[in-house]
Design a protein around this nucleic acid. Sequence first.
DNA 1: TATGAATGAGCCTTCATTCAT
DNA 2: CATGAATGAAGGCTCATTCAT
Lengths: 207, 207, 207, 207
Amino acid sequence: MIENLAPAPSKREIASEKRRKHILEAAIACFIDKGFHQTGMRDIAARAEVSIGNLYNHFPGKHDFLIGLANMEGEMIAPFIEHLEVDGLANETFSAFLQDYWVIVSDKDVAILTAEITAEAMRMPDIAKQFLEVRRSLALALSSLLEKGITQGIWRPSGDPLHTANFILDTIECAADRQAMDKTSAQAQLAHLEVFLSSSLGVSCNN
Amino acid sequence: MIENLAPAPSKREIASEKRRKHILEAAIACFIDKGFHQTGMRDIAARAEVSIGNLYNHFPGKHDFLIGLANMEGEMIAPFIEHLEVDGLANETFSAFLQDYWVIVSDKDVAILTAEITAEAMRMPDIAKQFLEVRRSLALALSSLLEKGITQGIWRPSGDPLHTANFILDTIECAADRQAMDKTSAQAQLAHLEVFLSSSLGVSCNN
Amino acid sequence: MIENLAPAPSKREIASEKRRKHILEAAIACFIDKGFHQTGMRDIAARAEVSIGNLYNHFPGKHDFLIGLANMEGEMIAPFIEHLEVDGLANETFSAFLQDYWVIVSDKDVAILTAEITAEAMRMPDIAKQFLEVRRSLALALSSLLEKGITQGIWRPSGDPLHTANFILDTIECAADRQAMDKTSAQAQLAHLEVFLSSSLGVSCNN
Amino acid sequence: MIENLAPAPSKREIASEKRRKHILEAAIACFIDKGFHQTGMRDIAARAEVSIGNLYNHFPGKHDFLIGLANMEGEMIAPFIEHLEVDGLANETFSAFLQDYWVIVSDKDVAILTAEITAEAMRMPDIAKQFLEVRRSLALALSSLLEKGITQGIWRPSGDPLHTANFILDTIECAADRQAMDKTSAQAQLAHLEVFLSSSLGVSCNN
DNA sequence: TATGAATGAGCCTTCATTCAT
DNA sequence: CATGAATGAAGGCTCATTCAT
């Protein structure tokens, strides 16, 4: 199998890519601390320990940090998609997913970033697109799991699985947001959530 | 019942209150158009056809427009609470509520404002408090309805009703947000949502 | 005769107009010192002893200082037009004009500003228009004088008077520019210029 | 006549010289398009398809592009000096010169560059020197022609020929500048100019 | 030579807010 | 109550130049 028809990245390119990531992480840290609009390029530069001008060698403008952030959220989501596709009993897979996913999205930083991105996405189609794309692939994977669960006789069929998957994710994410604003115990909330979702998936009649 | 222990508002006070509302509406219109941070006091003043200085006679600062907005969202929600408390079959009341509420929250302007407030609330406790309070009273009303439905034998009990109520609202609101970013038909989405939520509420076993 | 249908300017408007002029003069002083592009809004604000932000209450942007400057050059030129229109022998009027005009345009500051404006006008049609308009009215006045001189039998007719007028002004102004770059005596230069222009106007054949 | 005491340039030096010229031309193209101050080193590098850093291997700084430009204007003028020195009737030589020179200086790009240089020269003595030197040699050549014309009995003597020569060039160049800002026909303007200058040179009395 | 990442002062402009009128 | 000129810090971004590779 032939790969890498493109020339291998030079040392310099690798270093540059590292720097880019380093700067992006600094930017995200700022966004968590102060919010996107309250963060200045100066803040990012200071946090990344890089000159302001150099920021622009790696990101064309402030907007692009948002895109970078959306991409990064995508990367954060990717492993969950894989988890949903492993073999096994659907309800067990789902339960594991729910716990892991909840840990991530109910994290205050993540919730803050998500809120930030959501608000921006309302006004910037490119961000929205990126955001929805990631979301869509996660929903697709969950949808497959739901179908498997129905096939396995674990859940009873009810409505279109893709929509159901989306609603489930909605519930989780929005609950996580409330969590971040409030101070309730995240652990307790998770238990309630599990009950709610189990119920919404129903149980096979032959149970 | 005793009301109005305070002296009746004078004509001047009424006029001032009107002006305040007028300005707040202008501010909100700006927030919808451009977002909170992108809106300047100048924009608001221009839209309200009022001088910049005069803005400060009615609102101590920019932040207070956000509080005003959160209040207004509260007022928008209030009638729904009443709706949930009317007599009748719980599932019918719920269905009516769902439709009406969906119309409101899936409106793009409302979604934009909600996203804006949510993002700000993450960083501003007073906004979060206001926001969560409104949310809490709506959830309480819905929770009562759920209990009534269970009493009426319409739904089967499942988990804590208050949490369930919150999750239901989460699902609706988060779905509405996706709606606002995407372009799918809101009507179709509502149908799917209804199926999902019905399912999550279950049906009484003796049906 | 009815005038002033428009309301008289209020005290505040008068003060504002004064301030505007004050700021414009500061800007022009900066342009003379450092050139338009080398002058920052900070320089202007400092020189006018005004805050940077306040600059923008009187001029929408940096560009507008250039327009203001072009206007001011127009005002500077206006009296010369009147001088050209006084009664008397054309050659005497012309001689007086030449001396007075030379004093102005061979002034180093004026030459610098003119060069600055000319360069900008090449790229900004609105500046060019303003500049050419002023120039045109001066040329028209001079043209009238030339015709009068011919009528008076002082000069012999030669070519279109308006073009001749323009060429005469060209010669004066361009010579003044060279003057400003070089260090030759302005006075001597003026004498030579007078000879040249007299010659180009010719003398009536019946002399 | 001995030339080239310096060692012949090596191949590498020739290539470097070519590169230098290539870059300078790119810079000038930028100056025409956007103006000196609006042109960044990045623009020049991009236009020359050369790296920014490499620019500095050929020109010590941005200022030096201006010097290079002034030199190039000098090279552009050189052939005109030769033209003025050919044998023949002075008025015919002059007429030919006027036409050719007008074609050059009334070209919009040239006018733009000249305005740009003039404005800068006001503030930078080295540019002014270079500029005036070129101008001076052209004026000298024209002056010689004027003297020849007088000797030939074509023109009547009037004032110092060198000053006259300078004034003639002033008229041509300044008229060309107006031309570049305005949109009048350059051809028509040339005809008027010829009349004006002929007149200013006068005709010998014995004609 | 040739490259382009790195620098940080500087650019023009906008900001929320104040206050004399 | 109403006005809008005044403030000056901060906004995102560009600049000419350097230098390790």
